[in-house]
């Protein structure tokens, strides 16, 4: 395995169930996590809908993959950037999103929030700071 750590950003801009993009993205993030790179995940535009709480797909007959976002910390994916403007446009606040945490191994396993709310300008900075951007 390469010793060079690259910064990978997975960009999510689609709502969870209308297309397969969101679920595929999550799967790729989990698989990619095996490669010990510096991984971040971005949620903007309709992508912010992926993180909302209270999703229940039972009647729709689909797999509810929203609980899996809470397992990302176990895979050491701990930076989930969410765009404030995208939340605002959709009438959402941070309270409408799942509480996603990770345990910081370097800080006595303290539980810390994985979601980082950023402005559109800050999101552009996050994107510009990457080696590789994978869009879904």
């Amino acid at each position: 395995m390469s010793e060079i750590i690259k910064k990978f950003l997975y960009v999510n801009r689609k709502a969870p169930y209308g297309t397969i993009y969101a679920q595929e993205s999550l799967e790729v993030v989990l698989i990619g996590a095996a490669f010990d790179q510096d991984v971040s995940v971005a949620f903007l535009d309709d992508g912010v809908f992926q993180l909302t709480k209270g999703q229940d797909t039972t009647a729709a007959g689909l797999k509810n993959f929203s609980p899996t976002f809470r397992a990302l910390g176990d895979y050491e994916v701990t930076k989930l950037y969410v765009e404030q403007e995208s939340l605002d446009e959709r009438g959402l606040t941070l309270d409408d999103l799942q509480d996603i945490q990770y345990e910081d191994e370097d800080d006595d396993y303290a539980e810390k929030p994985s979601i980082i709310v950023v402005s559109r300008a800050e999101m552009a900075d996050v994107m510009a700071d990457q080696d590789v951007i994978l869009s879904f």
Partner: peptide
């Protein structure tokens, strides 16, 4: 049941 995922071996 909690995460809807079968974890990778290291996890």
């Amino acid at each position: 049941e909690e995460y809807q995922i079968a974890p990778a071996v290291r996890v």
